[in-house]
Design a protein around this nucleic acid. Sequence first.
DNA 1: TAATATAAGTAAACGTTGTTTAATAAACCA
DNA 2: TGGTTTATTAAACAACGTTTACTTATATTA
Lengths: 205, 205
Amino acid sequence: MGIAERKLREKEQLRELILDAARNLFFKHGFEKTSIRNIAEQIEYSPGIIYHYFKDKNEIFHALHQEGFENLKIKMESVMNIADPMGRLKALCKNYVLFALENPIIYDLMFTLKAPMEHILEEDEKTWKEGEGIFEMLKKNVRECIMKGYFRGQNADNATYAIWASLHGLVTLKIRDRSSLLKVNDAENLVINSFQSFSYMLDRQ
Amino acid sequence: MGIAERKLREKEQLRELILDAARNLFFKHGFEKTSIRNIAEQIEYSPGIIYHYFKDKNEIFHALHQEGFENLKIKMESVMNIADPMGRLKALCKNYVLFALENPIIYDLMFTLKAPMEHILEEDEKTWKEGEGIFEMLKKNVRECIMKGYFRGQNADNATYAIWASLHGLVTLKIRDRSSLLKVNDAENLVINSFQSFSYMLDRQ
DNA sequence: TAATATAAGTAAACGTTGTTTAATAAACCA
DNA sequence: TGGTTTATTAAACAACGTTTACTTATATTA
């Protein structure tokens, strides 16, 4: 019964074609300038067809947001072999920041744009498993740090959220153009230099 | 020569009327759902007239963004009487976070939405004096803390940016819906509880 | 006061957008 | 082959920001 399977495969192929086009346009021109019509034009189909494969624009961008998380996870997992918990936590944080600086557009989609969350909030199972994954990854390491005497008296959830927020703030002020006009020394490297300041504040024992 | 002045006053009045309508709709329904046509309908003029008073939609939202900064500045200045630099810095930070939690929509406009920065980048004098003001306010206090022995070896610009980023991250993850779906204890107060964690990390001496 | 210049305001259009509808073409199963 | 499901499209809808040409009202000058 290979026919049904081939059909399914072909159907899957067009879905991938749509995602490829969306990804290309999104990386080239950003979210607002990636329209359903642009995507359709790129794949040489009519705009209507896209709605056979995706519920709406939000669903397309939710799929791209998922891809981003897979890559972020890989980048963060690459330092999990570090033995010292605080050293590992700092390396995790640094890789988070580097990912954002290297992939500002997808980072924006993952953590700022409304589209993917709107999609999730319209689903039955309203869980943001991608974000949850990153948060748990950080929290696991924060817990180990707490056991080593760091973050004294702090609750793991709150400490983790505070750390995540610091990283997110560092990169998102830049991505959303709130740092480029600031009059500071070495503006070029403001984010990564300030990450050092963050790092310094982190490891009070 | 009161006639020309009356005319000017009347012109100013319609400008204010437009801003009032824009502010109302923006606070009620957010940025995306506040259209030029909606504003025009609200003030009972035709859409075209708005372009006699504002260059484009970005300029309207830049004006609202300015208002927000005036209010944030007032809120932050209310703690400047605290004598101890670190205590004062923490109070400044807390008021920043409270402002954002109390005014999430305007905070989003001030620090996340693209409209106001796009407007600035189209002007001759590309300076974000509003953001600069807040940054300098923080930096002044950071400098005093450095003189008291805090942030040892840290550059004031970087320490300030790291602190600002922490606050911004705390509130912006919430405002952009990245924290409500997180599975944590006391999710209701995650931001303000995590601010305590941040506070704890701040004052290593 | 009458003619003219300037400003205020509007209606209609342009080119977009996301999405839905009804109609068609193709593929499949009996 | 005939009927049914599926894939695909063209066209429309209602909205958007913005620009154009036009009208109306006001002010200035002769």
